[in-house]
Amino acid sequence: MSMTKIKAAGTALLNQWRFLAGLKYFWPVFLAAGLAFCIAADVYDFVDLYLQLIIIYVGINIILTASLNLINGYMGEFSVGHAGFMAIGAYIASILTVYVFPQNTAGILFPAAILAGGMGAALVGFLVAIPSFKTRGDYLAIVTLAFGMIVKSILENIDAVGGPRGLLGMEKLTTLPWVFFWTALCVWVIRNLVYSNFGRGVLSIREDEIASDLMGVNTRQVKIIAFVVSSFFAGIAGGLFAHALQFINPRMFDILKSTDILIMVYLGGIGSIAGSILGAVIYTVLLEILRPLGVWRMVFMPLMLVLLMIYRPRGIMGMREIRLFTPLRDLVTEKLWRQKKKEASDASP
């Protein structure tokens, strides 16, 4: 298809759907308003502290879910060790703010600590990506599972970071604006990655790894980048989590935490950014709403998940995306494809 034809179709589409023209203003306005609201809430303190904490958890869970979706949803691997990356980020960031940074500078250097946590997790993600060249499916699941357990086990054996007792002394540095910033950054990076040339490579690995290799996709490189990006954001989420709770111990990052993240991914739907956000929001908020039920909320929650899976096996948004996240280019291509199909069916009744 020639470039001019696509451009013409794009203009036609913009004329046809007026709201698409306004779309390009949506994100800047939404982000500016969101950030302004968060800063105002942080400064003037008009949002209830409990509500603030829930919003912070929602943001952290969105980061975790979106980053795991890159591997489990878009790349089609089954990683079960996401909490391990989170733990690395949480410990690195906490050690920096508690022990390394000079006193009273932790607040200013907080972004650097979070970033360092993310980098540390990304480095380990690089190492975990290497076995994924050869092993796939259930065997890769075992590799990531073992990785998660090894991380927890190592942390329990290092006395300098408190061993099984955990680490405390972090100031409450995770504020709404920071959570908003990192969440928006994570969603932005992953959305752009997925719709880039690299993202096509990720999707092709999910559909058929051998075929994509034969078509010239450098599957090793794609896997490494996907794992590194995903674990980087898991580390970021870990750092934010540690400074929101002000206490971490290795047990917080065990297999149950990984299961939680997995559930959010598949609840929202694989291969969908909007799904990740929905999954994280619904899961976190629902658990809070059900809190009066006490222990029984953890009985109803899995039941609801099972029912959802039976009646909607792909999750809420499985493999679909809302228009806000889809680039105009893709909308145009889809529309042209539909048109062509319609013409073909009209021609041969």
Binding site: T259, L262, I263, M301, P302, L305, V306, M309
Partner: peptide
């Protein structure tokens, strides 16, 4: 995921 849910 259903199995994980049943387990939980």
């Amino acid at each position: 995921i259903t199995a994980l849910g049943v387990g939980l």
